[in-house]
């Protein structure tokens, strides 16, 4: 019976010493986690999460005091990413902290602004230009839409303007494809593709991919002869013509993310 006790004590002692030594060897300082959480937050510094800014909220999450779904500007994606990072189950945004709103920018109605600089002090990102007794205005590109300047303004001259959709920031929509039941004429399409397949089988003609120099590419009928019969004609002068600035589209900053 005693030997059992000795063995267990000996074992515990040996392991304890080993762990003690390794605890010294592998001292870990600082906690990079806060920085990584802060990177996910949208930095609107709006305080809707109950903390005076995004960094305090990040430290609160890191310490485990705050939950991951208190940030409406971060929206659903933000909550999901935080859940992934912290390894906890994703919880939908809880509504007491407000609802995700479309991006809006503050706008000062200049004929009612009295130049009292209260909003300048309130703005977390110094996006308001102006001085005491001088006209104030908001730098739209810098404003994060945190709405902190609305309250202090004595004359309520600041309104939130949603960012309009222009051809530059227009986004392609998710292709919502209705998989409805096959429309009647659709079955005709299947029918004649079966006939087409049968004819191809009999004629032995295979309209498939030919070997060619670069990989891929598709072989298709040109329909060129439609418009090459007549020569180029000059069009008469129209009654009105509107020339416009040219859209070159988005030139992606080339990120070489070599996998």
């Amino acid at each position: 019976m005693l030997t059992a006790l000795y063995i267990m004590l000996g074992l515990a002692l040996v392991l304890g010493i080993m762990l003690g030594i390794s605890a010294l060897l592998f001292k870990v300082e600082g906690d990079p986690l806060v920085a990584r959480i802060d990177a996910i937050l949208p930095q609107t510094q709006c305080g809707q999460c109950g903390y005076p800014g995004c960094k305090p909220y990040a430290t609160a999450i890191a310490k485990g005091e705050a939950d991951i779904n208190h940030c409406p500007p971060g929206g659903d994606a933000g909550a999901r990413e935080l859940a992934d990072l912290m390894g906890v189950e994703y919880k939908p945004l809880n509504a007491e902290h407000g609802l995700p709103k479309p991006k809006a920018v503050a706008f000062i109605d200049e004929n009612t602004c009295i130049g009292c600089t209260l909003c300048i002090q309130a703005c977390p990102v110094d996006a308001i230009l102006g001085a005491a007794k001088h006209m104030h205005t908001i730098i739209a590109s810098e404003c994060t839409g945190c709405e902190l300047c609305l309250a202090p303004c004595p004359v309520d001259c600041i309104t939130m303007e949603p960012v309009a959709e222009t051809p530059d920031n227009w986004k392609w929509k998710y292709p919502v494809i209705p998989i409805k039941a096959m429309p009647a004429d659709k079955s005709r399409l299947i029918m004649n593709s079966i006939i087409q397949f049968a004819s191809k089988l009999l004629l032995g003609q295979t309209a498939d991919l030919l070997i060619h120099k670069f990989h891929g590419g598709v072989h298709r009928r040109g329909h060129k002869q439609l418009s090459t019969t007549l020569p180029i004609a000059k069009l008469a002068i129209p009654q009105a013509c509107s020339a416009l600035r040219q859209h070159v589209g988005y030139i992606p900053k080339v990120k070489s993310t070599s996998r």
Partner: peptide, 17 residues
């Protein structure tokens, strides 16, 4: 829907073959 023309055997044709 940019590529307006498509020339692909339907899935049913592939399975038929």
């Amino acid at each position: 829907r940019s590529p307006y023309i498509t020339d692909a055997p339907a899935v049913s044709i592939i399975m038929l073959k």
